[in-house]
Design a protein around this nucleic acid. Structure first.
Lengths: 259, 259
DNA sequence: GCTCCTATTGCGTCATATGCAACGGCTATT
DNA sequence: AATAGCCGTTGCATATGACGCAATAGGAGC
């Protein structure tokens, strides 16, 4: 709708993977150099970009400030923090918090593993829907027809030998997740990582977010991973309580309504 | 320079502290509702904002993605991470990493305290220059005339009884920091917090960033804080090594050239 | 069922964002 | 040291596209 704004946002995107100069930017977004310069000047005035050196621009501190302020605003994130931190401390593994928004699953928090083998992920990143534990938990909570619609619209890119590659199999998996109350990603996204995820619920029992543990297979085999389920669920339940979820029923089968 | 872009950035700023509707935004940035709508639509198309509900907008995932990608790009941050994490684990206190850019000191990383009493800070935030340990370390490393110029331009807002409130006293403090090799914020910013900071140096000995520990006074008195100096310096030195700093001379008096 | 509030759209106007081309500072090159 | 080439920067003329206004539509609340 707004041309100049759109171009400016494209510039920010370009700058996200490293400093660039005027010409590079002009080519990448397809506008004249001078236009780029003027847009950058406005962005610079508001500290969204800054000059790395005389001829290179990079993203500026306003962006960080904004992003973290906004993340702080997200109530779930704040509410889940203590439980997630404790889970991270207790297990030593990577903990993620992800939420579902507009057909996407986004990581909204991350607590790094103590170990050297780390998972590659980042706050703000989108998780693939068909092969991550967090996405399974979040999709499993959607109303039937929406879940089906989404499942049938996915492309099921095969990341590893274990990746689920079809809507029917995926819908079956989601049903399992829904009835069991937690999800497993058994090296379906990356060869060397497997994950668990469990839902964080709000006052009306609706699923607000998914809390997950990601563990390199070299550290823990499948049984070792599954042995972490109680710890994960305890953390997710504590987080749910923090978010106003009342019902303490944890009989292994939380298949109640999910709005 | 670019009006619409400038307004859009103002909108983002407004949205950083919570979802707002059209009218609120229109009033705050001083433009017509319909203009706000059109700008938001562009921002929404690029996922910089999203609708929280029918009549409220909030910041979107692109922003988070961008911010974290940009942070990852910052080499210092990545290089310092292991040392900072270890320092955080060893002491249990809040660890900050800050850098100096264009007359400002910005937090570029943070590791939370294990304790309940926490410091209020955030990645992306600006640190006040005259009353934080990180700023002292970073300013102390600047060339003489620039340091003097900055010191004389500050407003020395008095946050606490201990805040340094004049350029001469501040310059003396910086000289001490420079020769001693670390800085102390003795409840100069907040009554209940005191901090230590030490420089992280690059290949040519230049100061790249400041690493700091923030501790509530209820947990540790002044001597207790100072007892952490060796741990902090060890971490800063490890981080410096990671950044290419060669000179292992740690005789308590790193007053070498600082570019 | 009615009212009020807020989002949305069509439209006419003109501010403003744009591309172009020329300038100028800097670096690198021989 | 002189020159060539690169890249950032500026002035200008143009028309695009962003703007405010006012009318419409769509809900929510009473």
């Amino acid at each position: 709708m707004s041309q100049s704004l759109d171009r400016a946002l494209a510039l920010l995107d370009e700058l996200a993977d490293g400093p660039k100069n005027l010409d590079q930017l002009a080519v990448r977004v397809g506008v004249h150099k001078s236009t780029v310069l003027r847009l950058l000047r406005t962005l610079e005035a508001r500290r969204f970009v800054q000059r790395a050196d005389a001829r290179h621009y990079r993203l500026g501190p306003s962006l960080f400030d904004l992003a973290f302020r906004a993340l702080d605003e997200r109530d779930v994130r704040r509410a889940v923090e203590p439980a997630a931190r404790e889970l991270n401390a207790a297990t030593g593994h990577t903990v993620h918090l992800a939420s579902y928004e507009d057909g996407e699953v986004i990581y909204i928090d991350k607590y790094e593993s103590r170990h050297n083998v780390r998972m590659y992920s980042r706050i703000g990143r989108r998780a693939p829907l068909h092969c991550t534990a967090v996405a399974k938990v979040l999709l499993a909570a959607l109303p039937d027809e929406e879940r089906r619609r989404i499942a049938e619209g996915l492309d099921y890119h095969r990341f590893t030998a274990a990746t689920i590659t079809g809507a029917p199999a995926f819908l079956t998996e989601l049903a399992t997740v829904r009835s069991r109350g937690f999800a497993v990603d058994d090296t379906e996204h990356e060869d060397f990582i497997h994950c668990l995820a469990a839902p964080v619920r709000g006052a009306r029992g609706e699923v607000l977010a998914a809390l997950s543990l990601s563990v390199p297979v070299v550290l823990l085999d499948r049984d070792g991973l599954l042995a972490l389920v109680p710890a994960l669920r305890a953390a997710a339940d504590r987080a749910s309580a923090e978010c106003g979820y009342q019902n303490g029923n944890q009989d292994g089968c939380q298949d109640k309504e999910t709005q």
